[in-house]
Amino acid sequence: MDAYLPYILCLVLFCIGIYAVISKRNIIKIIIGVIIAEYAVNLFLILVAYRAGGRSPIFSSTQEILPEAMVDPLPHALVLTSIVIGLATTAFLIALAVRLYGKYGTFDISRMRELRG
């Protein structure tokens, strides 16, 4: 069980984000839930790539570093793009929230539903 403990803690983080998205009424809280779930997914990919006692995937010109001793560089590259995309989608969600605030004067989604009527 010990070898899976980081994965399980990362899963707890993901579940906290999903719970916030489902059960909160404030739009900013929902955006925070999305951000936390996204962090958990990025962390999970990096955890999968880790090698015990490994080195960073960067060669050095003054020091001999074996390719076999490196951690898996492929998830690092994919997570690098995923982080920037996550920031752009977060900005889009914030823009939507600011727009909804300008229209309804509140961040509470249940009151927006009442006003629509």
Partner: peptide, 13 residues
């Protein structure tokens, strides 16, 4: 976890 590229990007983002 030996991912300095991702750490640098994460901190500024």
């Amino acid at each position: 976890l030996k991912a300095p590229d991702v750490a640098l990007t994460q901190i500024v983002v």
